[in-house]
């Protein structure tokens, strides 16, 4: 189990992680979602004892990382696939890791086999593709058969087959009862691979929940096609926002489909279409993080 306790990291004048306080449950895949530069990697480095928090703490099974007697047996992490000396062979890299935590060498061959690197185990890591390096990183994370696993942007650089493999892999790990914490800046990726999602922006917590919960909380809109759109528009309450679409339809926010139907009936306007529109997870994410983008960009203007 992984727990963040008012975790805060302040660099000179930037607040990279701002009072994060949540628990990551075992047995499910938890997505850690936020735009680039929102503090995901910093949070993961603090969990792994690499950076020190300014305030608060991160604990694994109740202990801070540097207090874990045999860390690789409790936490496995793939933070940066390239944090390996390129002139060392894959096998030697894993053996050095294994030796440091008294893990038998037989386990090195097991994990190499599991990630499909047995045939290149004696080759220098420097010659590996990003995908192979990712696999080596995963092998290292699994070495101590840990109950908590962290992956920072694991799908970066993977081909579609590799992405599918890694999704199934997360699922398997979670089904085995492990805590699986996966960061990504891609909502679409999290929507298919995570059960629970924690959203952060500019270092602070925005929201969390299952994919369904997140989309449900976002206010949907109602698409209406009426025989007379103008009279429908004037029949709407003053606080309802609407947008007239080119084809004569109205997109109404702040009212349910039921409300709109009742209003139209009361005003005697015939409706040709009445469709509640749920926000996609992507839209929810954009909405939630729009105000917290570290490096905001303008929509390119259309030349007139």
């Amino acid at each position: 189990m992984l727990k963040l306790d008012h975790l805060t990291k302040q660099y000179k004048d930037t607040l990279a992680v701002d009072d994060l306080d949540f628990e990551v449950k075992a047995g499910v895949v938890t997505g850690f979602l936020g735009p680039n530069g929102s503090g995901k990697s910093t949070t993961m480095r603090i969990i792994m004892g690499l950076d020190r928090p300014t305030k608060g703490r991160a604990t694994i099974n109740g202990k801070q990382y540097h207090d874990l007697a045999s860390p690789l047996r409790e936490v496995g992490a793939l933070l940066d696939a390239k944090s390996v000396n390129p002139s060392r062979s894959a096998r030697n890299h894993l053996r050095a890791l294994a030796a440091s935590n008294k893990i038998p060498y037989s386990r090195v061959d097991e994990v190499l086999d599991f990630v499909g690197l047995t045939s290149v185990a004696g080759k220098k890591v420097g010659g590996f593709s990003l995908g192979m390096s990712q696999r080596l990183g995963i092998a290292g994370a699994l070495l101590g058969d840990p109950g908590v696993l962290l992956f920072d942007e694991p799908v970066n650089g993977l081909d579609p087959e590799g992405i599918r493999w890694i999704r199934d892999f997360f699922r398997t790990l979670a089904n085995e009862g492990r805590t699986v914490f996966v960061s990504s800046h891609l909502m679409s990726e999290m929507a298919v691979s995570a059960d629970e999602i924690i959203v952060i922006g500019r270092g602070h917590f925005i929201t969390s929940g299952t994919v369904d919960q997140l989309t449900a909380t976002a206010a949907g809109t109602v698409l209406v096609r009426a025989a007379n759109p103008d009279s429908l528009a004037s029949a709407l309450p003053a606080d309802a926002h609407y947008e007239a679409l080119n084809d004569g339809a109205l997109r109404i926010a702040g009212l349910s489909a039921e409300d709109v139907g009742n209003l139209a009936f009361a005003a005697g306007i015939a409706l040709h279409e009445l469709t509640p529109q749920r926000a996609s997870l992507e839209e929810v994410f954009m909405d939630l993080t729009a105000s917290s983008l570290q490096y905001g960009h303008q929509t390119p203007g259309v030349p007139s």
Binding site: M48, Y65, S83, V84, N85
Partner: peptide
């Protein structure tokens, strides 16, 4: 220094946090 230049220091310190 080779641990810093290759980034493997992070791997080393994760394995041996002391």
């Amino acid at each position: 220094t080779s641990e810093y230049s290759t980034g493997s220091m992070r791997t080393t310190l994760s394995a041996v946090p002391r």
